[in-house]
């Protein structure tokens, strides 16, 4: 085992996969010579050359469209959208083309590609460098959506995404890139897409969260532990397909569920998790399935106090846990 940061886990997975399979191509804005704005692709250009690490024009629809064409013609593209906020010009290619090709071809062929993108706030990125875009895509069957939050999960799941025969949207919380460290095996390993992980066991209350919020939840759970409330923290790791079994098993055990997500509250993916719990674990519930999320404002404000107000904090999460535990 070695200790790595989240960003290093991304980089190492890309590097090792590109070494393993020369069909893998990295493409995106500034990913080549510069090594990417977050340094995820640092050194890849030098190691694998400009043919496999492509500095694309600033054209997201073109990047994703070209990646789809590459996937259909025998390559395995890993396209980077520099910030998740920039993904919207490519939404048509992702939703109408990549996600539907297997269905459209009657199962004859699919679209093996990965779209990596940094999402989330807490970096003073303001309106267009802080968004959490998952809900735009979780309503699109045909895509897989992976949102891991620790170095171990990121490396194992990015490798799985690259080896997957279908299109995978791979969400990386940018605030956690250099914030979160963890142990990673030195040998090659892959984690299954669609499998949640109980990050902290507990019997009194279940919290489901991912991204930066997962780490805030773990911190809040520590606090609650000192107050005698044992919080179980479930990290779905994959949003689509969602590991309902692990989530429901936890809620059935604790009887209480809190879903914490950073995206806007209304219609956010956490609402889907909450609905699933309400529908499928109703008989086990001892309190209202609760959501704690970003407010319904257009995007994360720039001002530091307003940004902090947008993000569910450890304090706010602890308070929501206490309230729910009191039922």
């Amino acid at each position: 085992m070695v200790v790595k940061m989240n960003i290093e886990a991304v980089h190492d997975a890309l590097y090792e996969e590109m070494k393993r399979d020369n069909r893998i191509i990295v493409m995106g804005e500034d990913v080549g010579r510069d090594g990417g704005v977050f340094r995820a692709t640092e050194g890849l250009y030098k190691e694998f050359g400009e043919a496999r690490v492509i500095d694309s024009p600033l054209a997201e629809s073109g990047i994703i469209g070209a990646a789809i064409g590459m996937a259909l013609n025998g390559l395995i593209p890993v396209a980077e959208i520099q910030f998740a906020d920039f993904i919207y010009p490519a939404v048509d290619q992702i939703i109408s083309e990549a996600a539907k090709l297997r269905y459209r071809s009657g199962g004859a062929f699919g679209c093996p590609m990965v779209i990596r993108t940094p999402y989330g706030g807490g970096v003073r990125g303001g309106l267009y460098h802080s968004q959490s875009v998952e809900a735009v895509f979780t309503n699109t069957p045909g895509l897989k959506i992976v949102a891991p939050s620790t170095p171990y999960d990121i490396k194992g799941l990015l490798k799985a995404a690259i080896r997957d025969p279908d299109p995978v949207l791979f969400l990386e919380h940018k605030r956690t890139y250099r914030l979160i460290r963890g142990e990673v095996p030195e040998e090659d390993y892959v984690l299954p897409i669609g499998k949640a992980d109980v990050k902290r066991p507990g019997k009194d209350l279940t919290v489901i969260s991912y991204g930066l919020m997962l780490h805030f939840c773990l911190e809040a759970a520590e606090r609650l532990g000192k107050e005698g409330v044992e919080v179980e923290v479930v990290d779905p790791r994959t949003l689509v397909p969602l590991d309902k079994e692990t989530i429901l098993a936890s809620v059935k055990k604790t009887g209480k569920a809190l879903v914490v997500y950073e995206a806007n509250r209304t219609g956010g993916f956490g609402a889907e998790i909450a609905a699933t719990i309400a529908e499928e674990a109703f008989d086990y519930l001892d309190g209202p399935v609760t959501r704690l999320a970003g407010p319904d404002v257009p995007a994360m404000p720039y001002n530091s106090k307003l940004e902090a107000l947008f993000l569910p904090s450890v304090d706010k999460i602890s308070e929501a846990m206490r309230k729910l535990a009191g039922y």
């Binding site: 191509i25 043919a51 629809s61 073109g62 994703i64 469209g65 070209a66 990646a67 789809i68 064409g69 590459m70 996937a71 259909l72 013609n73 025998g74 390559l75 593209p77 048509d92 290619q93 109408s96 083309e97």
Partner: peptide, 16 residues
């Protein structure tokens, strides 16, 4: 929508 896909397929053809 098919136009960028054709471009990607052409890029792949050349790379292969």
């Amino acid at each position: 929508a098919g136009i960028p896909i054709a471009v990607g397929a052409a890029l792949a053809a050349r790379m292969k």
